[in-house]
Design a protein around this nucleic acid. Structure first.
Lengths: 158, 158
DNA sequence: TATGAAAAGGGGTTGCT
DNA sequence: AGCAACCCCTTTTCATA
């Protein structure tokens, strides 16, 4: 399950999250190991699915998506059947960055990035609120990002 | 501001977000351009800060962080002075992945990843709720991730 | 000034010890 | 697990329009 991560794996993962463009020899040096050893660890971690992908992170406003919204969505109580449709729709909206089901009275929390407030209004009325089974949406515009990372603090297993 | 992104830039950014390990020649082929042209675009976009960093994304449960929590934090109304301290603390908690200030009655939304529910209880009581000025915390454990990406749909400016 | 080609350098990959 | 050789990709430079 937590695919047996030892201290070396943890160090590698933490460094690569901070900067995936770090050359293999520098990485090896920082973790006090050799190129090949580190390279094989990375292979294993990728095959095991611990490393999901290599990507670049963009500055959202500079990429033309200056507005971040968190929407709390509640579904009609008797609309179990419309859930697969909701999920399908939400996955295909490029504006939706994340969507999670929550325990408690909120059914979904949805993280959305759009160009500006007008674009959100458009998205809200014509897209999100139009999905069958949606009962209530409470939208909050995010002001300042106090913290916004993708880095997980990986610790050795056990 | 939205650093003048043309169609070629947009294509490059979208492809690199999907897979940053894509070799330059394949990337060039996909966007119907040449290696050097694409390479210079990437340089420019990095210098302009549109591309913030290269990273790897981990499977959180496989990396030993199986529990995702969204916490809504409200501060005491008269505790303006304690905000810098709150921000500083939150930024230094490795469990906190994101924290945004919101318009409306919730002051902060905090996204947290921990090993298990016990780890969250520990984090909640000994860390988050101990920060000066915090009045109320409403924690929701996330069940299923309907969507969880970092990819922004980049469109040409204008 | 921007583009393409081609050389030079560095890093990823592999096999062997 | 480490070493070293190989090969491919990135990066620079140069020539061209």
């Amino acid at each position: 399950m937590s695919s047996d991560i030892d201290e070396l794996d943890a160090k590698i993962l933490n460094l690569m999250q901070a900067d995936a463009s770090l050359p293999l020899n520098e990485l090896a040096e920082k973790v006090a190991s050799s190129r090949s050893a580190v390279w094989r660890r990375v292979q294993k971690l990728t095959e095991a699915g611990v490393i999901k992908k290599h990507t670049i992170l963009l500055d959202a406003p500079k990429a033309g998506l200056g507005v971040l919204v968190f929407a709390q969505v509640k579904m009609h109580a008797h609309s179990r059947d419309s859930l697969p449709n909701f999920i399908e729709k939400v996955r295909n909206f490029p504006e939706v960055i994340e969507c999670h089901t929550l325990m408690g009275n909120i059914d979904f929390i949805v993280k959305i990035r759009v160009r500006d407030v007008q674009a959100y209004e458009e998205f809200f009325w014509n897209r999100l609120s139009q999905i069958e089974g949606v009962r209530e949406i409470s939208s909050s515009i995010a002001l300042t990002a106090v913290k916004d990372t993708t880095e997980l603090q990986v610790m050795p297993t056990g």
